[in-house]
Amino acid sequence: MGHDRMTGALREFDLAVVGAGIVGAMTGHLALEREPGLRLLTVDQLDQLDQLDQGSPNATGLSAGLDVPTGRDERQRELAARSTALYRRLRAGRPGLPVRPLDTFWLLARDNVGRLRETMAGPVLEEADPDALSGVFPGLRPSGDQALLRSGGSWRADVAGLTRALLDEQRGRSGCAVREDEEVTSLRPYGDGFLLAGEGGRALAWCRTAVVATGPWALHGPFGERMRAAGLRIKKVAAFHLDLRPAGDAPALIFEDDDAFLLPQPESGRWLFSFTSQEWDGSPVLGPPALSDGDHREAVRVLRRYVPWLAGALSGGRAFYDGYTPDRLPLVEPVPDHPGVVVAVGGNGSGFRLAPAIAERALALLSPGYLEPQSLGSGRS
Rank of each mutant, 00 (worst) to 15 (best):
Q45E: 08
C207Q: 10
S143L: 13
V237C: 13
G175T: 13
F137R: 03
W206T: 04
A59E: 10
E333I: 07
S375Q: 15
L86C: 07
G282D: 14
L195F: 05
V332G: 00
D295T: 13
L329M: 04
Y87S: 06
D129K: 10
T70C: 11
G248V: 09
H220T: 09
L167A: 03
S350D: 13
L363Y: 03
G96C: 14
G24I: 10
L365I: 03
F273R: 02
Q54P: 03
Y190F: 12
G21E: 06
P95S: 14
D111W: 06
H220K: 15
E74M: 08
D192G: 10
L187I: 01
D47E: 02
V237E: 14
T276A: 15
E333D: 11
S274C: 12
G221A: 04
V285L: 15
Q170Y: 08
V99L: 09
S283R: 08
A92F: 11
E169D: 15
A299G: 05
R156W: 10
A357E: 01
G287Y: 11
R202S: 07
L286D: 15
R208V: 04
A247V: 08
G201E: 02
L149D: 05
V332P: 01
V23T: 00
F194P: 03
L219H: 08
Q265C: 12
G377W: 07
F137C: 01
P101C: 04
L49A: 06
P57D: 02
D181C: 11
S83A: 08
A247I: 07
D192E: 15
A203Y: 03
P368M: 07
Y190T: 05
A203N: 06
A247D: 15
S350M: 13
D259T: 13
G346H: 06
R179D: 13
R91H: 14
T84Y: 05
L41H: 09
A238R: 08
T163F: 02
D295I: 11
A81C: 02
K236V: 09
G231K: 12
P326Q: 04
L167W: 04
L232Y: 01
E183R: 13
P246R: 00
R77A: 02
F261G: 02
Q265S: 12
Q76K: 06
A230H: 12
R141G: 00
A197Y: 00
A319D: 12
A121E: 01
K235F: 07
V300Y: 06
V285I: 15
I22F: 03
A64S: 11
P289Q: 14
R179Q: 14
S268P: 05
P373T: 12
S151N: 07
A355K: 05
G294P: 01
G316E: 11
R179H: 13
V332N: 01
P264I: 08
L187T: 00
A59D: 09
P326N: 04
R179K: 15
S315D: 13
P123T: 07
T27N: 08
R5V: 10
G221Y: 02
A109C: 11
D249R: 10
R110T: 14
L354A: 03
D67P: 05
A218S: 15
D293F: 14
P266A: 03
V285S: 11
L329E: 05
G323C: 05
E372S: 07
G96M: 12
S274T: 10
R361E: 04
G215K: 05
R361N: 04
A230V: 07
D44G: 02
V307Q: 02
